Computed example of a mutant assay.
Amino acid sequence: MSSQDETIFIVFSDDWGEHPSSCQHLFKCIGSRYRTLWINTVGLRTPKLSRTDIDKAIHKIRRMFTRKITPCSSKKLPDELTVVQPFMLPFQNVRYVRHLNKISVRRAIQRFIHTQQIYKYIVTLVTAPNGCDYVGLFDENKIVYYCVDDFSEWPGHDKRLILEMEDALISKSDLFFATADTLFTKLKKYGKPVFSFSHGVDVELFSNLPGRNHHWLDNIPRPIVGYFGLFDDRSDQKLLADTAKNHPDVSFVITGNVVTDVTLLEKEPNVYFTGPVPYQSLPAIVAGWDICMLPYKMNALTESINPLKLKEYIATGKPVISTPLPEVVSLSQWIHIHSGQDEWRKAITQILSGKELTGNCEERRQFIHEHSWENKALFMLDKIFEQIG
């Protein structure tokens, strides 16, 4: 039996099954080979007395007490992966709440570890700063901080608290994986191993668009410029509204959860909100688009993001237009990168007329296959086991 076969992974991340995060993609691969305990944790933001937050809280509490976990796709959970939902409270700015959460999480992990008859190494991987309270409790061989965003810049978050938590997590971690250059640069100064680790892509899913569009697009006139994913304060609504006004003959479709005020966009008759669809249905949505778009604002909030949908868009072979996010600029071979409504207006006109092409098809296929989630998972495993020795 190899040292890898004797390894247990403990993962602190988002709720398994709620949405297809990068960590879930990775552990669909890793969790099919290595025993993994996935801990659904509470969010970083203190909830408010809003309908959305109340609904989320009720859903979370139900999962804590029913222990029912639903995979985020039609596929079953990976064979070696176990998901638990310990009882936890979200008010992390209260010291006693954090202490209570720590006790609850420790008991859940101890129960799991005691069921494992053979293991030699424990590796803990964390994707958010609030994981700082739970690492180092089980004599782990390695603690990994998989840094996917600068959460301190997110609206509604307690910046001081999050930076304090992240400092604690960084001090306890042995190595880092960073999804953006700004995050890599920040972590590099701590003198520990840090690896640049951009997001991957489900090659099979997004490289094979179905022959028929999703039925939700049936009554939306072509051509269509589309966006899928969470639509929030990072989205540049003014850019999108102005672009829609400049192209009254083009439909602009947003598919996904909307968690910000979109009154500005709802005024435009050629902007459509379909709501979210299951992850496996996204290719059918994209099949009906003529252009994929990434209309993000350019500010401190977006400087560190690496949109998960970026390589998914590229894999479809559809033209992609984006604002100049740092992580998008590095892939300019495959993306039409433009700032402001005038540039977007001209670019959309040229793309729809067939006058602008991006990248060689064979080179694109090779690029996407190199960045599959399977290859990303193998890279992560190699670097972790190198550190274990």
Rank of each mutant, 00 (worst) to 15 (best):
M1Q: 03
S3Q: 08
Q4V: 07
E6D: 12
V11D: 09
F12G: 09
C29H: 13
W38K: 03
P47Q: 10
P47T: 04
K48P: 06
D53N: 15
K60F: 08
I61H: 01
M64Q: 12
M64G: 01
M64F: 01
S74N: 12
L77Y: 14
D79P: 06
E80L: 11
P86S: 00
P90M: 05
F91K: 01
N93L: 07
R95P: 09
V97T: 08
R98W: 06
R107C: 02
T115C: 08
Y119S: 00
K120E: 09
Y121K: 05
L125M: 10
A128N: 03
V135M: 02
G136A: 08
F138L: 02
F138P: 02
Y145F: 09
V148A: 07
V148I: 12
E153Q: 10
L163V: 02
E164H: 14
D167P: 10
D167L: 05
K172R: 15
S173Q: 06
S173H: 09
S173L: 07
D174P: 08
A178S: 15
T185P: 00
S198A: 13
S198G: 08
D202R: 00
V203I: 05
F206I: 00
F206Q: 00
L209V: 06
R212L: 12
V225C: 13
Y227S: 09
Y227C: 03
D233E: 15
Q237I: 00
K238E: 09
K245P: 11
P248Q: 09
I254Y: 05
I254H: 06
N257A: 00
V259Y: 04
L264W: 01
E268Q: 01
P269K: 04
N270I: 01
Y279V: 03
Q280S: 04
I285S: 03
D290T: 05
D290K: 03
L294G: 02
M298V: 15
K311N: 12
L325N: 13
Q341M: 10
E343I: 12
G354C: 14
G354H: 14
L357I: 15
E362A: 15
K376Q: 11
A377T: 05
L381W: 13
